[in-house]
């Protein structure tokens, strides 16, 4: 599954830590929130970057401290119709002030990419094939918007 950033496939350094194994201490690891909460001590000697995978049903403001320390936050889109991550993302970006990489993982459709970008996501962990041409088209077709959002590149009336 390719990782997309700025409209192109990028090399990804992150690996997801599961329940059992330990990653090398210098690796960039993504840790699911529940493991982070239970076994934070395992990470005391970790020198690589740490990312946080936050499930769909979690209120991000309840974990503001962990999020503030994270180098990456990953939110999930289990089905393209499940819009919870959009609200989590805006709360992270606009209310908690999270500035690092925000990634969405799951059933991302090219026709949703513009909304995801506007909600503050900047990288995409994609199911299926990536078509750079339709991505480019779909993320640029709307240049106007009525809602000001995080780092939004659209134009507004004011």
């Amino acid at each position: 599954m390719p990782i997309i950033k700025d409209g192109a496939i990028i090399e990804d350094s992150w690996t997801v830590l599961d329940e059992e194994s330990d990653a090398p201490s210098s690796a960039d690891i993504i840790i699911p929130l529940n493991i982070m909460l239970e076994k934070a001590d395992r990470l005391s000697n970790h020198s690589g970057r740490i990312g946080l995978l936050i499930p769909n049903d979690v209120a991000v403001e309840d974990h503001a401290d962990l999020i503030a320390k994270a180098d990456l936050v990953v939110l999930e889109l289990p089905a393209f119709t499940d819009g919870r991550a959009y609200s989590q993302a805006r709360a992270l970006r606009e209310d908690l002030g999270f500035e690092k990489e925000l990634r969405v993982k799951g059933d991302v459709l090219v026709d949703q990419a513009a909304y995801l970008l506007r909600c503050g996501f900047d990288s995409f962990d994609f199911e299926g094939e990536f078509d750079a041409v339709s991505w480019e088209k779909s993320t640029n077709i709307m240049t106007t918007g009525y809602q000001r959002t995080y780092r939004d590149k659209l134009s507004y009336r004011d």
Binding site: F80, T81, D82, G83, Y86, S87, R90, Q112, A114, Y115, L116, R118, C119, M142, G145, Y146, Q147, T149
Partner: peptide
Amino acid sequence: RQWSSLHPEFSYL
């Protein structure tokens, strides 16, 4: 109407 049009956060309720 304007605020809700193509709202990036509230289009997959």
